[in-house]
Simulated scan of single mutants.
Amino acid sequence: MALLIDDAARRKGNAQSLPHADEGLQARARSSVARWLSAHDFPDAHSCSVDGITPLMLAAMHGEDRIVAALLDEGAPVSALDDNGNDALWYACLCGTPGPILRLISAGLNVDHANAHDVTYLMQAAANGRVDVMWLLISLGASNSLVAPDGRTAFDMATDFGLQLLLTVDRLKNGMCESSRFADDAPSHNLAH
């Protein structure tokens, strides 16, 4: 019984000191964000740079989940769009780091948002061969039946990417075979003196 009382007292004491700990953590996070913003030439979390890219988009593109979280805490505009109609989740999907993707969807971004070119995150991931991002987005409810203006779905785009990859590998393989054949036919030079 004494152990339970001591544990409850300890928790009560910790609870009283938590607001100060939270203030310290928040101050460090604000300082860290301020340094990050300055290093990337942003005056504040609400600004944007060339092509309408916001700090949140840039942090998401680089997979900097800690900065994404801090920017969201500072009220960075989560639904801001760049000049092509892409939001921060688009940039997070380019990087493929799960943390920012999950955080931005939790912040309210629509997993099926289409940009100004009517391309969704899932399509963009597919067209870039990011199968890991495709799996994550589908598991989070992204629709695989949406169609791009060219009539292709995300799965069509992934198939096209895979085909291009196979053709490239085949060309490389054939090129290596040809170059090794030329090397076999070339006269040997003794480099030793």
Rank of each mutant, 00 (worst) to 15 (best):
V119W: 05
L18D: 14
V50C: 07
V33D: 05
S32M: 13
V78H: 03
R28N: 08
P19R: 08
T54H: 04
D82T: 04
G75T: 10
G13D: 09
L18V: 12
S32T: 14
G52R: 02
L56E: 05
D73G: 15
G63D: 06
L72G: 13
P55W: 08
Y91Q: 09
I53A: 04
R30A: 14
H62L: 12
E64N: 13
M61A: 15
A15Q: 11
D87G: 07
P98G: 00
S31K: 06
L25Y: 07
P19E: 07
D7M: 11
P100S: 09
S47P: 06
D7L: 14
N14A: 11
A127Y: 04
D41V: 07
D118R: 12
R30Y: 06
D112R: 04
R130L: 01
P100N: 05
D65M: 04
S32V: 07
L89T: 00
S38D: 14
A29D: 13
L72K: 11
G85A: 03
R130W: 00
N110G: 09
V33Y: 01
Q26P: 00
N84K: 12
S38P: 01
T97S: 07
A45G: 10
P43K: 15
D6F: 13
S32A: 12
H46Q: 14
L18P: 01
L25T: 08
Y121P: 02
A69V: 13
D7Q: 12
M57A: 09
P19I: 06
R11E: 15
A8S: 09
D112P: 00
V50E: 13
G52Y: 07
P77N: 11
G129E: 00
H117S: 11
I5T: 08
H117A: 12
T54R: 04
I5W: 02
H46D: 08
V68S: 12
N110M: 04
L109F: 04
N86M: 11
A39S: 15
A76D: 08
D7G: 03
W36K: 11
A80N: 01
Q26H: 10
L25Q: 13
A9Y: 05
V50F: 14
R66P: 00
K12Y: 11
R28E: 14
R35N: 08
Q16E: 13
G63Y: 08
A70P: 05
A34I: 04
L72E: 13
I53L: 11
L94R: 05
G52M: 04
P100L: 06
R130N: 02
N115E: 02
S106A: 15
R11W: 12
D51L: 14
R103K: 09
P98C: 06
Q16D: 01
R28S: 11
H40D: 11
H117F: 08
G75H: 11
M61N: 10
D112N: 15
D51H: 14
D22C: 07
D22W: 02
H20S: 13
P98F: 10
H62C: 09
D22P: 00
N110E: 09
L81D: 00
D6V: 11
F42D: 03
D87E: 00
I53F: 01
S106H: 06
G13Y: 01
L25C: 03
G129L: 05
V68D: 08
L72M: 14
G108Q: 03
S47W: 03
T120M: 01
G99Y: 05
G63T: 08
M123E: 08
D82F: 07
D73W: 08
N115V: 01
A114L: 07
V78Y: 03
